[in-house]
Simulated assay, not measured.
Amino acid sequence: MQSLLLLLPDFSLILLGALLRRTLLDADALWTGLEKLVYFVLFPALLFNALASVTIDPGRMLPLFAGGLGVLLSGFALGWLGRPLMGLSAIAFASRLQCAYRFNTYIGIAIAGKLHGALGVATMGALSGMMVPFANILAVSVLARHGQGGLWRELARNPLVIATLAGLACNLAGLEPAAPLAAVLERLGDAAVALGLLAVGAALRWGKVGGRLAGSAWLLAVKLAMMPMVAWGLGRALGLGGPAFDLLVLFAALPSASSAYILAMRMGGDGPGVAWLISASTLLGVGSLSVWLHLLG
Rank of each mutant, 00 (worst) to 15 (best):
residue 112 A to T: 08
residue 58 P to H: 11
residue 84 P to L: 00
residue 74 S to Y: 02
residue 85 L to D: 00
residue 110 A to F: 10
residue 39 Y to A: 12
residue 112 A to D: 04
residue 135 A to R: 12
residue 57 D to F: 08
residue 134 F to G: 08
residue 88 L to V: 03
residue 42 L to M: 12
residue 119 L to M: 11
residue 44 P to L: 01
residue 37 L to T: 11
residue 114 K to Y: 01
residue 135 A to P: 11
residue 78 L to D: 05
residue 37 L to A: 14
residue 130 M to K: 08
residue 79 G to Y: 00
residue 90 A to C: 04
residue 115 L to C: 08
residue 50 A to W: 08
residue 96 R to I: 01
residue 120 G to Y: 05
residue 60 R to G: 14
residue 38 V to Q: 09
residue 72 L to N: 03
residue 67 G to W: 02
residue 71 V to F: 00
residue 124 M to A: 15
residue 86 M to F: 05
residue 80 W to K: 13
residue 126 A to D: 07
residue 98 Q to T: 05
residue 66 A to H: 04
residue 43 F to G: 03
residue 50 A to P: 07
residue 97 L to T: 04
residue 87 G to N: 09
residue 80 W to I: 02
residue 57 D to H: 12
residue 40 F to M: 09
residue 55 T to Y: 07
residue 127 L to D: 14
residue 79 G to V: 02
residue 88 L to Q: 09
residue 52 A to E: 02
residue 43 F to W: 13
residue 44 P to Y: 06
residue 39 Y to Q: 12
residue 40 F to S: 11
residue 58 P to L: 14
residue 103 F to Q: 14
residue 123 T to H: 13
residue 56 I to F: 11
residue 101 Y to N: 03
residue 75 G to H: 04
residue 54 V to T: 15
residue 51 L to Q: 04
residue 74 S to Q: 01
residue 80 W to R: 14
residue 75 G to P: 03
residue 62 L to N: 08
residue 113 G to M: 09
residue 46 L to T: 05
residue 132 V to D: 09
residue 134 F to P: 07
residue 59 G to Y: 03
residue 96 R to Q: 08
residue 81 L to T: 05
residue 78 L to Y: 10
